[in-house]
Design a protein around this nucleic acid. Sequence first.
DNA 1: GGACACATGTAATCGGTTACATGATTAC
DNA 2: GTAATCATGTAACCGATTACATGTGTCC
Lengths: 185, 185
Amino acid sequence: MSVRSLCLAILSFGEATGYEIRKESTTGRFSYFEDASFGSIYPALARLETDGLVTVREEHKDGKPTRKVYAITDAGREKFLEDLIEPQAPDSFKSPFLLVALYAEQVGPEAISKAIENRRIQIQNSLDSLTIHNTQSSHAGSNWTREYGIACMTFNLNYLESHAEALLNIARGAHSTSPAVAAAE
Amino acid sequence: MSVRSLCLAILSFGEATGYEIRKESTTGRFSYFEDASFGSIYPALARLETDGLVTVREEHKDGKPTRKVYAITDAGREKFLEDLIEPQAPDSFKSPFLLVALYAEQVGPEAISKAIENRRIQIQNSLDSLTIHNTQSSHAGSNWTREYGIACMTFNLNYLESHAEALLNIARGAHSTSPAVAAAE
DNA sequence: GGACACATGTAATCGGTTACATGATTAC
DNA sequence: GTAATCATGTAACCGATTACATGTGTCC
């Protein structure tokens, strides 16, 4: 999914500024589709406008910086649905945590312990932002996907907590940190 | 994670050619870390060699194309562990499937039905390649991560199957495909 | 007085993909 | 005979990140 499509996806829920689109993409409902930075969003919006897929309106409020509020057009909606339906790329799960876990014996118990804790906090944060922010909205698709996300993350967290000790033992197994143990071998 | 690190990660399990590294990265144990293409792997290996992090050995077998077998050096191992321990990027789950689901009402029941089926097959395939290929290896880290992957994917598959109907109903709700229903409204 | 949220944009750079170029072997 | 697998590599291109540049309002 490109930043272009991401903008259309977010705008199809309502008007937004570049700044807001970025926030939606890093936290909130769109976090599991794409992360985008300002450097990619602003040029993308500009191009979408010249292509007639979105419109802009400048908002001047006294004392506040000028906002450029974008809105999707009919052509934009059509283009977005096209992109959506065409052959789906497979879902992907990229896990730096599992990579560290794979090398548990090499990195040792301290690093593993830190990695597990980081991962726990990550999942907890995602979970919090999914639960707190809108328990039951009127949009059915949002509810379904949110519940899916919550279910998977909750499972993930429980699994991690109940198997953390096993991973720590693997890390402790080969990589002795204590000189006494090393001497005894 | 860069392709460079990916190569070191795979080579730290044993020698391999560029071709084999690519296979490992798209299927098998390393599939949830990074996908890499030839166009990035070969240059990465060349640079790793000039940096002294890997060594090459050319294998000429009669009738077979020349293979360049790469092996990691001590400096390579060190560098890899360094990269591994330093502040972890968060895990990310990118889901084109959930994106379609979010717009269930717009895309309609046929597209949703197809998307669900695709996703089911995807999960099943990943699950198969994790279970079949090495039930219990001697490497503890591999076992732990494999079991983690299997657990999460199994949960995912079950959840998907038990909530597919609800999603289909959302898709049917707004987007009536039958003219009779449309007329009755 | 400083940090943080709001707000937009550009330029240098980089990492990676795609397509191209080549060629042998094996299985159907 | 043709498709698939093995095998390596380059060049054009592209999309996105990072850092830079600028400025206001608000809260502590």
